[in-house]
Structure formats: C-alpha cells, structure tokens
C-alpha cells in the first residue's frame, strides 16, 4: 500500500478478486474485445471497480474506478463543463480504452489519450497493488509506468483505478464537410480538432468560441453537418501523416483517414506491423518480468511474433 494517498477499499477488494494464481482477464464494455485476440478458454473474467470517486473541477482532475463507462464519466464531468476527450463508445470503460490504447477522433487537437493519464493503480501478477504516476497535473516522480500500461492490453496488470486530466468543454463543437484537399485544410487552419477524409470527401471538426469557429469555417467552401461519418471498424492502420496523401483505395475498400494524425479506419483487415528485433527482445523481457507465469490475459498478444 502506498504510504500516502489512502488506497481505496474498492481497489483492495479488486486485488483480492484478481488474486495471485489462476489466469485472469478484465472485462470492460467489450467494445474492442477482439484487439490482440481473445483470452485463452478457461481464463477467469473479472470486472474492475466502477464509479467516479472524486472530481475536482478547479484541479481539472478526475479519479475513477477503471470499470467506469465513458458514458458515466462524460455525463459527470459535463455537469462542471469538463470532459476527457476519449471519443469512444459510451459503453466502453476507462480501463478498457486505456488498455487498448487507441486514440480518439479528436486526437489532432487533444493528443493521444495516454497524455491524459496522471495516475494508475493496477493489480500485478502477484495480486499486489502497484501505484504509478501521481495525482497532480504535472509530475516526474519515478519511472512512467502509466505510459507503459496504456496500450498493453492488460498484459502487465489489471487496471483498478485511474486519475485523468480533464479539459474544459469548448464553447461550440461543429462539424463541416466538403469536397476539398484535406492537406490544404491541415496547413491553413489553426488547430482544428479533426480532419477526416475518405479519399474524396472531407469532414472537419472545429471547436472554440463562436466567432473563431465561424471564421475558420469560412476559410473553405464547407457545408455544416451534425457530426462525423460512421467509421469502418474492421481494420485500423497507422501510417506517417504524410503517407496518407498517397493512400490508395483498394477495389471495394471503404476507408476514412485522420489527416494530420495518420490513423486509417478501414473495412479491410489491417496487416500486422512488425517490431524490430531489439525492441521485441526488450518488450518480451518486460512481459517475462511483469507476468512471469503468463496469467494476465493469456492468449492475448501485443507482440505479434
């Protein structure tokens, strides 16, 4: 237990549930369950604690159980004009979204979701609680295990509690569309929240005060729409942002790219990306050290070998 910052009773209970021996996996909202493959049959399913345990608007931080849904988080924070821009399905859980580590649609403006994480308490392979990071908005105390947990698909531990940085909800959020060059929009607009492109049509999200949003929108021949298009979900490709320009349409493929970011949502299965031998050896070593008996999410793979 940490000497400071009393560990919540619900985290202690979760540690008991996770235990120290048999194969275990944490179930969230099952919205991205297939990422990395499903756990081996016989793996015990557990659920992380739920609930928003503290939200301090003047600190712009929120502490919650990892099993809390984004819907609940969004609703609670909105009461104080704040948000955490994860932009995933409302039934997805905070812990699940972080474990998968995919960024949200407005990454162009708000950055990767990992940069919103301040503190994580997780249960490790031995059933013990590990705290990393700190509750304040700025912190470099010790190794940044929080960043390692994001995108680790639960292979390093079961996330129990998360403290996140909140942001103010912008005065207005508006979506526009047009048949335009998305790269020109990227170069001319000042920090739009998202630029989506299907190779033909562009959708742009602009946020801020009314006058700025109107002025930015007037730079191009846009038509206002209610929101983003529906995204294909079969595959998620990631490329360098400038490589998007040459992204070719396969026959029959439907894709929508995040311009300036490099994520491509496609209805085809995306190929696995390779990891260099050196990095692979480091990553395997981390897996062996942090889960020596391979009981955390067995069968699920971050490292495709």
């Amino acid at each position: 237990m940490s000497p400071v910052g009393e560990v919540d009773q619900r985290v202690l209970e979760f540690a008991n549930v996770v235990g120290a021996s048999d194969p275990v996996t944490v179930v969230g909202g099952r919205t991205q369950w297939a990422v990395g493959g499903t756990p081996e049959p016989g793996t015990r399913e557990v659920r992380a604690p739920i609930g928003i345990w503290s939200h301090e608007p003047e600190e712009m931080t929120v502490r919650c159980g990892a099993g809390t849904t984004l819907g609940e988080l969004t609703e609670q924070l909105a009461r104080h004009g704040q948000m955490v821009p994860f932009d995933m399905a409302p039934e997805a859980t905070v812990g699940g979204v972080l474990s998968v580590g995919h960024s949200g649609l407005r990454r162009l403006r708000y950055g990767h979701i990992r940069d919103l994480v301040l503190q994580i308490r997780h249960i490790d392979h031995s059933g013990q609680i590990v705290s990393s990071g700190g509750p304040t908005v700025k912190n470099v105390s010790g190794y940044d295990l929080c960043r390692l947990m994001v995108g680790s698909l639960g292979k390093f531990g079961c996330i129990a509690e998360v403290t996140l940085r909140c942001l103010p909800i912008p005065a207005v959020t508006r979506w526009f569309t047009g048949f335009l060059d998305p790269f020109e929009i990227f170069n001319q607009m000042y920090r739009p929240s998202a630029i989506l492109w299907d190779g033909n049509q562009v959708w742009v999200c602009i946020e801020g005060v009314v006058s700025d949003v109107a002025a930015q929108a007037s730079l191009f021949d846009f038509e206002e729409v209610t929101g983003p298009p529906s995204l294909p979900t079969a595959g998620r490709l990631t490329v360098e942002p400038k490589e998007l320009r040459g992204h070719a349409q396969k026959p029959g493929e439907r894709w929508i790219a995040e311009v300036g970011v490099g994520v491509i949502h496609t209805d085809c299965v995306a190929p696995h990306r390779t990891i260099s031998d050196v990095n692979l050896s480091l990553m395997k070593d981390l897996e062996d050290r942090l889960d020596p008996n391979n009981r955390l999410n067995p069968g699920r793979q971050v490292l495709v070998r």
Binding site: H102, S103, D144, L148, V150, V239, V263, S276, N279, M283
Partner: peptide, 23 residues
C-alpha cells in the same frame, strides 16, 4: 542501437518511448 516509437500515431508493441522519456 534502437528506435523507440516512430512517426506513426500508434507504434506497434508497448510504449517504450513513453517509458524512456523521463527515465
């Protein structure tokens, strides 16, 4: 010698880049 992270939005595997920064 190795490269941690890359210019794509989600580099494959664990975030060694994030671990290295601040170490």
């Amino acid at each position: 010698v190795t490269l941690l992270g890359d210019l794509t939005p989600e580099s494959p595997g664990y975030d060694l880049r994030g671990l290295f920064i601040g170490s």
